[in-house]
Amino acid sequence: MNVGVSLLAVIALILIPWIGVSALGLDSFFGIVIPYLAFFVFFIGLIYRIVQWARVPQPFKIPSVCGQEKSLPWIKYSRLESPANTWEVVLRMFFEVVFFRSLFRNLRADLQGRRLIYGSAKWLWFGAILFHWGFFIVLIRHLRLFLYHVPSILNYIDYVDSFFQIGFPPIYITDLMILGGLLFLLLRRLVDAKVSYISHASDYFPLFLILGIVISGILMRHVYKVDVYGVKELAIGLATLHPAMPKDAHIGTIFFVHLFLVCTLAAYFPFSKLVHMVGVFFSPTRNLPNDNRMRRYVNPWDYPVKYHTFCEWQEHFKEQLQQAGFELDEEWCKGQNVAKENKAA
């Protein structure tokens, strides 16, 4: 049901611009109004989320330590897994964000009779890397649509990306990466009993949505060749805040489908699990150093808690203490009444 609903939702999202453009001729609504609206929602939403996280204090320094601590000088400590300073934390975060290092640790547990066996399980990591890196590079490649003079770095990326020179126009490697990654992630969600059990419709939806974007994109390039110059004119117009529908260009309905899905993704992004992209940077188990005993961490809302003071305790156990031959510490309790008020610990 979750799968069906998400798939239907994406199909509906494809039909909306299709009908809107080809039957109702709402070109500029889908070409100009919707994109502005979507990106407005995207930016405001994202800023809202970031402010929300930043506003909430992190009370304690709680890194998940995954390696040897920095302790005695002759014991080699793990800079990445038990970072002891900010620089090492930056390194740890870098590996998390760019290479999904924690995901790389993944194992698979199997119960065979009374034995637990752990196997390596890097497929999830591999699929995730294919998808995310594919997505990232495709996004960068798209910049050429928004720039009059395409910087050589973009041309270079294009060149490398179409290195295999299969077909014309040549197939991009990143298209295959993102497609392969997505299909794997989707398949895994459907087939793996555990993952399927934990999935909501809102877990399938982004997968179908992005799949829709990728497929419509590939179709535009290889099947229903759209007027790229027209698209570029529209894109530059949007980017320079002088939006206009290109004259005498036949952009093709498929482009509007592609654009509408992208807009949906952008508007959906801040309010869904996709914010993990920004959230990961805030994760206190990863972005804090394991230096608790070296450098104090302050909790902004820390408050004093009443405890059983020595003097109260001594009063309580006076007899037992004397019986056992311990000296009572009256002097401390004299001074303590004053001190207690000062430092209500």
Partner: peptide
Amino acid sequence: RLNRFRSFKLFMDICVRCGACADKCHFFL
């Protein structure tokens, strides 16, 4: 707690249900 623990708030917000943690818990195993 959502207003006092960034950890809690964030963890409530960003799980993608990838399931990497699923078979890591001894109680599940």
